[in-house]
Amino acid sequence: MRLDEPSWWYATEGSQVASRLLSPLGSLYGWAVERRFRTAAPYRAKLPVICIGNFTVGGTGKTPLSRFVLETFAARGVVSACLTRGYGGSLSGPVWVDRARHAAREAGDEPLLIAKDARVMISRDRAAGLAAIERDGGVDAVVMDDGLQNPSVEKDLTIALVDARRGFGNGHVFPAGPLRARLEFQLGRVDCIVVIGEDPPEGPSPVFEHLKKRFPGPVLRGAVMPRGETEWIAGARILAYAGIANPGRFFRLLESFGPVALQSRAFPDHHAFTEKDAASLLAEAEATGAQLATTEKDLARLAGTTRTLDKLRERSRTLPIEVTFDERDLVRLHSLIDGALKVGARG
């Protein structure tokens, strides 16, 4: 099921009628999520499981944070793997991602991206995927990507991300709003919240202060920063395109590095680019003398496709990103990860 978000989820005005009309469906959807947790018999793994998720439909930075945790493990000599459902791909798993063999249409763009630096297990049945990781051996810890609303696996640490600008939108449950279940219910299932991204134009993010008062656990601030060189952006003409849940964040990041002109083209989340899309972008870049720029996820979806899409991939540059924390919050996050490793080491 596609979950492309309507703009009125985050609109300050004009969304009340649609929200009211859809609120009965939202109540039913939220009830179904909660019922799954009440009736579930979650799998208890012998390995520590750290879950990265979000309260809302759409992107908040789960993939960069999952990569951050995986890199943290690697720096400590902890062998870890990522467990994901492989959204957007055809593989149901359990199967290890092989970048030499799998394309995005099979594995999904996020698993391919994460698999650049870590082992990735795709499994629509998360419990079966976790059991497969244990059977294959050689892994000390598991990072479960986008698993907050999945009750099939016990987690030792659950971290939820919230976008500093968008927050919880209109505060209603899907499809009346972006929440995946009632907020109070979801808050009770997480150990830590990371408010991520830049503040809204009007000032410091009210979401951060609101959560600090409402949530008893740690609420951290994370920033999305470029990873690698950015000199190619300043003074250049840029034609940026993105098929992710929150393309505006990517476009604003590019804008912050001072291009002389920036044109942006937004596509639906996990968009499967067509020959027509590629030809149009290539023609526009040629006509305006612009450098094509896109996200790492979008570039992953272009690999192993048609000649025109391969040409678009070759002519596009990416702006890799990473999550960063100030020293105080980094220490707190590392402490939570250490605690999960100790509690989750069941032998």
Score class of each variant (00 low, 15 high):
residue 214 R to M: 08
residue 246 N to C: 04
residue 269 D to W: 14
residue 242 A to Y: 10
residue 201 P to E: 11
residue 220 L to G: 04
residue 311 K to P: 00
residue 32 A to R: 14
residue 320 P to F: 05
residue 5 E to Y: 05
residue 89 G to K: 08
residue 92 S to L: 14
residue 181 A to C: 04
residue 16 Q to P: 00
residue 79 V to K: 15
residue 329 D to K: 06
residue 279 A to I: 02
residue 273 F to A: 07
residue 32 A to C: 02
residue 328 R to D: 13
residue 72 T to S: 15
residue 155 K to M: 01
residue 30 G to F: 05
residue 151 P to N: 03
residue 124 R to A: 11
residue 153 V to K: 01
residue 186 Q to S: 11
residue 123 S to W: 03
residue 282 L to Q: 05
residue 30 G to K: 02
residue 198 E to V: 13
residue 86 G to S: 08
residue 313 R to I: 04
residue 309 L to F: 05
residue 197 G to V: 06
residue 278 A to D: 08
residue 147 G to S: 06
residue 46 K to V: 07
residue 244 I to P: 03
residue 180 R to D: 00
residue 106 E to P: 01
residue 21 L to W: 13
residue 219 V to N: 03
residue 109 D to I: 10
residue 166 R to S: 12
residue 292 L to P: 06
residue 211 L to K: 09
residue 106 E to T: 01
residue 249 R to I: 05
residue 127 A to P: 06
residue 273 F to I: 07
residue 190 V to W: 01
residue 191 D to T: 01
residue 250 F to V: 00
residue 61 G to F: 10
residue 193 I to T: 01
residue 108 G to L: 05
residue 4 D to L: 11
residue 120 V to D: 09
residue 228 G to P: 13
residue 289 G to V: 10
residue 60 T to L: 10
residue 317 R to H: 14
residue 318 T to E: 11
residue 230 T to H: 03
residue 5 E to P: 05
residue 182 R to Y: 00
residue 297 K to A: 07
residue 271 H to Y: 15
residue 230 T to D: 02
residue 161 L to F: 04
residue 11 A to R: 14
residue 156 D to V: 04
residue 170 N to L: 05
residue 4 D to T: 15
residue 328 R to S: 14
residue 96 W to E: 13
residue 235 G to W: 12
residue 21 L to A: 14
residue 15 S to L: 05
residue 33 V to T: 08
residue 310 D to I: 01
